[in-house]
Amino acid sequence: MSQKEKVCQQKLIVTRDALEVIQGKWRIPIVLALTFGDKRFGEIQRDIVDISPKMLSQELKSLETNKIITRTLYDSMPVTVEYSLTPLGHSMKKLLDELLNWGVTFRKEVVGR
Score class of each variant (00 low, 15 high):
81 V>N: 05
68 I>Y: 02
76 S>T: 15
99 L>E: 02
44 I>V: 08
72 T>D: 10
108 K>T: 15
109 E>Q: 14
14 V>F: 05
14 V>M: 05
52 S>F: 07
107 R>Y: 06
95 L>I: 09
34 L>K: 02
67 K>I: 11
39 K>G: 02
90 H>P: 01
85 L>H: 01
14 V>S: 08
3 Q>Y: 09
96 L>Q: 05
110 V>T: 14
82 E>I: 15
88 L>R: 13
68 I>P: 00
36 F>A: 14
76 S>I: 14
73 L>K: 09
8 C>P: 02
53 P>C: 00
4 K>I: 15
7 V>R: 09
88 L>S: 11
100 L>V: 11
76 S>K: 14
91 S>G: 11
53 P>R: 03
48 I>P: 03
112 G>D: 11
33 A>K: 05
60 L>I: 08
50 D>K: 07
74 Y>G: 04
99 L>Q: 00
1 M>T: 14
19 L>G: 03
68 I>L: 11
33 A>W: 03
53 P>S: 04
86 T>K: 09
88 L>A: 13
83 Y>S: 02
46 R>H: 13
20 E>Q: 08
75 D>Y: 10
53 P>I: 00
55 M>E: 15
36 F>R: 13
60 L>N: 00
27 R>D: 01
89 G>H: 05
99 L>R: 00
36 F>H: 12
53 P>W: 00
23 Q>W: 03
62 S>W: 04
32 L>D: 08
15 T>E: 08
83 Y>E: 03
74 Y>H: 15
35 T>S: 12
2 S>V: 07
105 T>K: 10
109 E>D: 13
87 P>R: 11
42 G>K: 09
93 K>C: 09
82 E>M: 14
26 W>P: 01
30 I>Q: 01
112 G>H: 08
58 Q>Y: 06
81 V>Q: 08
24 G>H: 06
63 L>Q: 01
23 Q>T: 06
79 V>K: 12
15 T>A: 12
97 D>R: 04
92 M>R: 03
98 E>T: 05
40 R>F: 02
53 P>Q: 02
49 V>N: 11
79 V>I: 14
82 E>K: 11
111 V>R: 04
107 R>G: 06
98 E>P: 00
88 L>T: 13
89 G>Y: 04
63 L>Y: 00
102 W>F: 14
107 R>S: 14
111 V>Y: 07
15 T>I: 10
90 H>T: 10
15 T>Q: 10
45 Q>R: 15
7 V>A: 07
77 M>W: 11
18 A>N: 11
72 T>R: 13
59 E>V: 05
93 K>M: 13
39 K>V: 05
36 F>Q: 13
14 V>H: 04
41 F>D: 06
28 I>F: 03
17 D>P: 00
42 G>H: 06
43 E>Y: 05
72 T>K: 14
80 T>R: 12
3 Q>T: 10
73 L>M: 10
67 K>M: 13
1 M>S: 14
84 S>W: 04
16 R>K: 12
72 T>Q: 13
21 V>K: 02
87 P>S: 11
38 D>L: 06
77 M>S: 15
9 Q>D: 13
5 E>G: 03
32 L>N: 11
28 I>Y: 01
49 V>Y: 13
10 Q>G: 07
